[in-house]
Design a protein around this nucleic acid. Sequence first.
RNA 1: GCGGUCAUAGCUUAAUGGUAAAGCUCCUGUCUGUGGCACAGGCGAUGGGAGUUCGAUUCUCCUUGAUCGCC
Length: 364
Amino acid sequence: MGFLETGHGVVETPCLVPVATQAVIKTLDSKEAEETKSQILISNTFHLHLKPGEKIVEKAGGLHKFMNWKKPLMTDSGGFQVFSLGFGKDFGLTKFLGKGMADKKIIGVSGHPKSLKITQDGVFFKSFLDGSKLFLGPKESIKIQEKLGADIIFAFDECTPPLANYDYVKKSLERTHKWAEISLKTKKSKQAIFGIIQGSEFKDLRENSAKFINSLDFDGFGIGGDLWRERGGTKKILDWFIPTINEKKPRHMLGVGYLENIEDIIKSGIDLFDCTVPTHYARRGIAFTSEGKLNLKQIKFLKKHEPLDKGCTCNICLNYKKDYISHLLRAGELTAFKLLTFHNLCYFNNFIEDIRERIKKGEV
RNA sequence: GCGGUCAUAGCUUAAUGGUAAAGCUCCUGUCUGUGGCACAGGCGAUGGGAGUUCGAUUCUCCUUGAUCGCC
């Protein structure tokens, strides 16, 4: 366990970081987000740069005031968008490779995505809003993140695609490391900055990346890229390098957090992790409960006059029943998304709070 | 009462004298540093009765129902 101290309060770890890409947890206002026991949120440099632009946020007094969130905040650097709007879009990929595809590393050292251009200095994006050109490199990302004003910012990196072979990842890592140094040098603010370890599923590249990022004067670590989806695979990769990095500095795992993996990654030494699953799945009609995932769109739930989870004490479970939420979903009512988002965040936060309690008792 | 039009999946619509197609709905999955999506698979139909024909959802007649017009 740990306490991460920031200018906006202390985060008790291990901890889930809910995703507020566009300075909002979709469907919730900041007061509601706080009521889910969320301690810290992560917003996004790329998206806020496009809309509304960092100057607007800066004029409003920074992200905290802009969105009326008084607790700690992070901003992701835009490095993930290098992947998601590039190779991710080209191949319809997530950052995890599916089972049985480990040998299909079709992106080689000369591979390049269709919709953006990656250079040694940064990335040329084409805005999906209006097609306008947009360049984002380490300097640009850090300057934007300084204007946004989150408590913790991330170095600009390239999240490598899971289909990338060893040579591609090696080359990408050279860029990411160079960008890490420039990110660190560019930052003039008092914000904390985390450097990102990449290397996909290649042992020596992960080890090299951990060694290099650990040697720089970052305040914490981000761990990104493909970490395998098969049970045990993530632990295997983390065990390669987690023991080699400074134990005083927090470790944030980027974009990971299926319920069934959370305990494992905490055991592997992860303090923080952001994940869209609780909020994203809520908008697909899925509730997380002690009985597993429930798809509330299913017609059978119209006949269930009971809370989403009998053991849950969140505002939703105390006040609403499955039949009503199912009706709202099937009727296309937006409030359904809000109720499920609220419940799912409570469920995840309670789930992790329980792990913290068990750590205190020496059970984990 | 008379005349016309129509009847295909839960809904809206295709097609054909030779095994009936699609969209939505419904069912089962997928989704990890967020484009309120998207994707994969599945269940499911020629209103009822007779006739012509090797074979009718298609052509003919009757019937039932819907709809429009006229009185």
